[in-house]
Computed example of a mutant assay.
Amino acid sequence: MHYIFWPAAYLPGTTDNYVSNDIIVAGLTVDAVWTQLSNTSAWPGYYSNATDIVFHDGSGPHLSEGARFRFTTFGFLVEALVTEYVPPAAGMPARVAWHGWVEGDAEGRLDVHHAWLIEELPGNRVRILTQETQNGQPARELAGATPNPMLNAHQAWLDGLAAAARQSQT
């Protein structure tokens, strides 16, 4: 299976918070999943923790390399810049990642790298992987919470994404 490409400053194990979630689902296509994930206007329909999505240059709602957008998640207004955007291609996983940040002083500043990988597996299966690393005091607070709210919310995002992709195939 493939893996996430990490910028050095966001390498898991060196940041204040890290979570990894993945699912493997039979009967979905990479294209169906990609269509739901790359279209940010679909997100609130299957993931309630992403709202108020706005593209700075009006280019949205579809993600693209270099796109700059913002959205609200976990009560934070996150600014984001798409740093990796690789649509599905035969034999290669689809990838999208963004650097996100929340402005603030030392107590409120948050910097994240959120990455997704969608790959076809043998046996008519699709793997959907999302991983995120975070730096900053809010990240340390999230990492110390039990149950981990980011881990649980990202699992809900995966589950909702898979359900939306399945519904789109019918």
Rank of each mutant, 00 (worst) to 15 (best):
Q167Y: 04
I4A: 03
Y10F: 15
S48H: 15
M92F: 14
S59Y: 08
W34D: 02
H114F: 10
T130L: 03
P44W: 09
G160W: 00
D105R: 14
G104A: 10
W34F: 07
H2R: 07
A9H: 15
N17T: 01
V86C: 10
Q36A: 06
S41A: 15
M92E: 14
A32R: 00
E79D: 14
G75H: 07
W116Q: 13
P61I: 01
A50F: 08
G123F: 10
T51Y: 05
E65Y: 04
A67R: 04
R95M: 08
G60T: 02
G91P: 15
V30W: 04
D57E: 14
A42V: 06
G160M: 02
V96M: 13
V19M: 06
H62P: 00
G100P: 07
I23F: 07
A163S: 02
P44G: 08
D105S: 14
Q131A: 07
H113P: 00
E119W: 11
L110K: 04
A80M: 06
A90Y: 05
G75D: 08
P12D: 08
H2I: 03
F76W: 13
Y3H: 11
E119P: 03
V82M: 05
F76V: 02
M92L: 10
V82L: 04
W43H: 11
A153N: 14
F71K: 08
A153G: 08
V33G: 02
A162G: 01
P7K: 15
R127L: 10
V86R: 10
Q137E: 12
S38F: 00
E107L: 15
N152W: 06
G100A: 06
Y3A: 11
L129A: 06
Q169N: 04
T35Q: 13
A80I: 01
V33A: 04
Q131V: 02
S41Y: 11
A163K: 01
T133A: 12
T14W: 02
D52R: 14
G136N: 06
S38T: 04
Y3I: 01
T29S: 15
N148K: 03
E103I: 06
Y46V: 05
Q167P: 00
W101H: 11
Q169E: 07
A97T: 06
G75A: 09
R68E: 13
A139M: 08
P7R: 15
P149K: 07
P93C: 13
T15H: 03
